[in-house]
Amino acid sequence: MGYFLQQLVNGVTLGMIYGLIAIGYTMVYGIIGMINFAHGEIFMIGAFVSLIGFMLLGLAGVTWVPAMLLIVLVATMALTAVYGWALERVAYRPLRNSPRLAALITAIGMSIFLQNYVQLLQGARVKPLQPVVSGGFAFLADGDFTVNLSYLQLIIIVVTFALMVGFTYLITRTAFGRAQRACQQDLGMAALVGVNVNHTIAFTFVIGASLASVAGLMFLLNYGVIDFYIGFLAGIKAFTAAVLGGIGSLPGAMLGGLLIGLIEAFWSAYFTVEYKDVAAFSILVLVLIFRPTGLLGKPDVEKV
């Protein structure tokens, strides 16, 4: 029982990270109907920017952990958001009215480009980070097994929740949210009633990128090592999460992320750790076969 609870905690933490990335996928898919293949690289860039931020703060002598986290969080979100914006402006906006495959190819090209860009600039070696947040508390003793909730896991869960609340507010209550939802329903119609479609799409990428960068920061804190290749697998799994939750649905993305995180944690704990990626992909295939719209997605009606 204790072991089970421990895996539950680990899985939820992992799921939060996937969920944050998945939101970027699902928003972009919802609004322009393309898989933003380079989104995983944005997450990776977020992780690298946070690592540089932590090192800079270390050199500057800032040691108070909450201040460090807050500064790095804000700086990473801001700088990575620019990457999201530039990505859309350079690679996707010129192709908005082109065949869908064209945008997918530029997305894959961008993904390869960004990976190698970071590899060239920062080197191919794995980059470690000293633990920034340490300690935790044991909240349940089950025989000789205690369930640990580290402060880091607590921070990840709390920050994700806070971001989710803010994000939900943004989408449901603000003018941008209204424009975003309108564009999701019908780009042309939204443009006709005066929504600035270009701005809305650009801002969607900015938000997706900043959420992914937070996920990158958490990944860095959680695992302590990053390299230029982490974006690929994390991106694929987050996309799986988005599809599992129902692509285009924002709560679905979070739910899907949580489920993927839990599946991965439990699979690693009770079965074989080597095949944990296979488990995640198999879930994707099963979901698409039996419930192609995902858990919370709306059925896609094909009009003739």
């Binding site: 996309f239 080597e274 295939v285 192609p292």
Partner: peptide, 28 residues
């Protein structure tokens, strides 16, 4: 057989998943 009834983008991602599964199986 199981995936071909999916539409474009979904098919892309599922085939990608299958490609990775084959590689992971070969590896392990």
């Amino acid at each position: 057989f199981p995936v071909l009834r999916l539409r474009g983008d979904y098919l892309a991602i599922v085939t990608l998943g299958f490609g990775e599964i084959v590689r992971v199986v070969l590896l392990n």
